[in-house]
Computed example of a mutant assay.
Amino acid sequence: MSSSSEEELLDFKPPDIAEDTKMSFENLLLPKSREKYKKTYEDFIKWKTGKKVKSLSENVFLAYFNDLSKDKRPSTLWCEYSKLKTTIRLKENVNIGDYANLSTFLKRKSQGFMPKKSKVLSGNNIETFIKEAPDEQYLLEKVILIFGVNGACRSNELTALTINDIETHNNKMLVRVRGCTKSDRMFIVQDELLKVVQKYQKLRPVGIKSDRFFLNFKNGKCTKQVVGRHKIAAIPKGIATYLDLPDAESYTGHCLRRSSATLLAGAGANVLTLKRHGGWLSDKVAERYIEESFEKKSKITIQINKAPLKTSPFEPRPSTSSTVSFDELNTETSTSSTLNSSPSIQQVNLPDKSVQLSMANFTNCTVIFNMNN
């Protein structure tokens, strides 16, 4: 071996496997949710250390989720399970998705649980607020309402919206939403709603470093301070309060997205249209909005009420077969036999299995039908 080769071997340093694993763990998680996934994993490791447990068996995870279920809702348990399944697979190379008993445990915890959903704004509510609320006080709320409903936007999507995501073409505004899924979404603002948005745009101060679209609005002017996610999430509650709607606390940050999907489903949209509009990957979510649609339920009620009153699933179907009398059948006994006399046994060969017999005059006798033919 040459001296140069020996020097290369001496200078060679094996890769840091732990560091590579850490890097792959960081890169495989989505940037937006990376910290949440890491915290879920760290919470489990902390619990496992406190219990002095080293195994990653199914019983360990059953015990962990049983402890979590004491103060967490079933929907939260499923969320923690999903995040932990990903992190455990990446960190420990163990797939807890194969633990059938764990899945059964979570399903039983979910039985009878009704998740609390945000209330939705009706079309009349939206129109009333935009027309009647004074712009000097509620212009920001109006623009967020327009964007949130037209684009089925989440609070964090509205927060991240920038001036570069908005383009105006031929009296129509094209807005691009950087969604949580892999693909972006787009929606249009036009007509009278566009005038409201443009009025807000013109109030943007000059020389702002941030490119965020939504800026704080006060006393009829925009400030240089950006609007945070929590303030955007509280806007539906403020709108419900202005409209004097009951239980205004139930209009949460998810209200605008739910209102958008509900209105679209009520207009007759199918599952595919709803999925594209809201960026949902699952059919179940879109189908839920269609099933809960007031208009859909009204159509079902109308169909039920218009059904023929005589139609019943318990009524026998009318027979299309012919009705023949007993005398018309070929019998092996004498035709002179009298059926209404003493009890007797006669054998009848039916030429057709679909034949319907009229037995009105058969009394005090026993009849055996041979259906083999």
Rank of each mutant, 00 (worst) to 15 (best):
F213E: 00
R204E: 00
T273V: 15
R288T: 12
P246R: 07
V271L: 06
S298R: 14
N219K: 11
A265N: 09
Q225N: 13
F214K: 04
L272S: 14
D211A: 01
L193I: 03
T301I: 11
R204C: 01
G207A: 03
L309H: 09
K224P: 06
F214Q: 04
G207K: 01
N219T: 02
G268E: 09
S282R: 01
D283Q: 10
K221L: 09
L194W: 02
V285F: 09
R212E: 06
K202V: 05
R257K: 15
C255Q: 08
S260C: 15
F214P: 00
L245A: 06
A265Q: 07
L203H: 01
P236E: 04
R276A: 15
S298W: 06
V206D: 05
L245Y: 04
Q225Y: 05
A233P: 05
D244C: 12
P236Q: 04
Q198V: 04
D244Q: 13
F217L: 00
D247T: 15
F217Y: 09
D191V: 02
A248I: 11
G238H: 10
F217C: 02
I208H: 04
R204G: 03
C255R: 05
A261H: 13
G253N: 12
L245K: 05
V196Y: 01
N216D: 09
Q190T: 14
R212C: 06
A267F: 13
S282T: 10
K296E: 12
S260F: 11
Y242A: 06
P308I: 08
G278C: 08
K202R: 05
P246D: 09
A269Y: 08
A267I: 08
Y251E: 09
S210L: 02
G238I: 08
T301Y: 12
E295N: 08
I235F: 06
S298G: 13
N270C: 09
G279E: 07
I232D: 02
F213H: 02
L256H: 06
I239C: 05
S298N: 14
G238N: 11
D283Y: 11
A233I: 03
S282A: 10
A286P: 02
V227P: 02
Q190K: 14
C255I: 06
T301C: 07
I208R: 02
F214R: 03
V197K: 00
C255V: 12
L194N: 04
L309I: 15
G279S: 07
A248L: 09
N305I: 12
V196I: 03
K195D: 10
V206Q: 05
R204K: 00
D211K: 11
E249S: 08
P246N: 08
T252Q: 10
K221W: 03
P308K: 08
T223M: 07
D247I: 14
L272V: 15
K231L: 14
Q225V: 13
D247H: 13
F213W: 07
Q190G: 01
